[in-house]
Amino acid sequence: MNITLKVWRQKNQNAKGALETYKVSDVSPDMSFLEMFDVLNERLVTEDIEPIAFDHDCREGICGTCSMYINGRPHGPLEGVTTCQLHMRSFKDGDTIVVEPWRASAFPVIKDLVVDRTAFDRIIASGGFVSVNTGNAQDANNLPIGKDQADKAFAAAACIGCGACVAACKNASAMLFVSAKVSQLALLPQGEPEREKRALNMVAQMDAEGFGACTNTGACAAECPKEISLDNIARLNREFLSASVANPEV
């Protein structure tokens, strides 16, 4: 296969960027999308052009590092798939593919296709945890949790924090990410003691980071590689509102 790539190149956070065009030939359909970038980068080195910087690590679809906006969609054309699990058999010979970084004021570009997603870490640090110090736990089976409830919590916990939801949302809202964590812990008895504070603090931090507000377009869930459900956002709204109304300390 021969592919034409238009890739966003930007030297650093403050530089002005632009799309550059590269042709890649002899692409095997069995290659992953990132392996095609590897091949291109190796060639660029021989041509004395600095290779394209992009985030990637596990290449198994679980670490959440890879983050390319491919032909107008985060992680490309397939559903429930990260960039690293996208293979070239999903494209046709002669295709032109436009690759851009995640776009959000809360995710500034570091270089080329690499963005800074530490805003997500700060949101987790504001309340995405159960305050249990090491050694304080009771026996694991002392806390029975019904299978349905455990499964729901697991489905929310499957979030890999890649930021595709923010990238896809026209408002660059982080609600799906935040709601997944809030939901996971709201669904489990372990999360109960800090339930109200968690919702309030995480939403406050999310707002402080400069993400937009959710307008329920559903683009986030449609593009989420782990198919996190919009139900979580409704749950977050519920958690936040009931905490705002009921919590005496707010």
């Binding site: 736990a137 019904g146 919590a153």
Partner: peptide
Amino acid sequence: IDQCVAQGVPFARDYGGML
């Protein structure tokens, strides 16, 4: 296992709620 469950790690469970 105790520690992880306390943190909210959603391990697989049976219908009765046991791990």
